[in-house]
Amino acid sequence: MISRERNQTDHRKPSTTHQRMPNHGWHDAAWSVVSVLVVAILGLLVWHLCVRIFDLPKILLPTPWQVAEAGWRRRDELLMASWVTFFTAAVSLMVAILIGGVLSVIFSQSRMLRRAFFPYVIFLQTVPIVAIAPLLIIWSGYEFRTAVIATVIICLFPIVNNITTGLESSRPEHHDLFRLYGASRWQMLVRLQIPTSIRYLLLGARISSGLAVIGAIVAEFFVSNGADYVGLGALMTRWQGLLQTDALIAALGMSTLLGLALFGLVNGIGLIFFSRYTRVD
């Protein structure tokens, strides 16, 4: 009798998020890649034509080709600086997740602490990093750690906000189930609330991955002045001073790629290690 439904499901494809793309999905994906490339090529072409038609000086706006050339010429410097910035952003993101996780768990356990401290987390979000960076340099010096602190400040809010939401998003019937069997507060936290919040944490980390690269570069504008380590932000300031617009634009392109890379890394980690927590039943 019951075999009817079993047979049904054995041939069934896994549902929702892990459904395999049907064939026409490949066409869709291919078309979206092609259309993005076409827009990019058209954009570069318009850019190139503008420079040629209006006869713009190289200092004001170099051609795409000149930018690529400058990037290739300074590839060692660029790659080195990109790695430094990427490392700063990635470390900061991890620190932000750690601090954010601990803060959120504390907030989830005590309404009073949450009421008292959550506004200050929002304050972190609203404080302009450009204004706080000089202060951080006075306190912490022209160091790698200063860049990390500044970047953590920028990344923290989306992470705390998302994990806090996640910790409170367990479904009422799950909550009832745990209560029915007399679960302790600790069991509720570890077996229900934290696993539920991982999905939200990943969303927050995705938002923060873009912010982390921005934060790292902005911090380097200030910190790199006197530091040994040179990130993209430092290169940009230097090349701006030397009016090397072509290299500056190449660095800008690189920083965009870094943002994408960190976003991809967060997504990849989520998919490989936490996919079971991202499923919706």
Binding site: H174, A183, R191, Y277
Partner: peptide, 24 residues
């Protein structure tokens, strides 16, 4: 208690879902 929805924890395998009450 059997709820209107199955209320299984999506990150646990079937066996671990069934074990949950004993763990708690």
């Amino acid at each position: 208690f059997v709820f209107q929805q199955p209320a299984l924890l999506p990150w646990r395998r079937v066996i671990r879902n069934v074990q949950l009450p004993l763990e708690l």
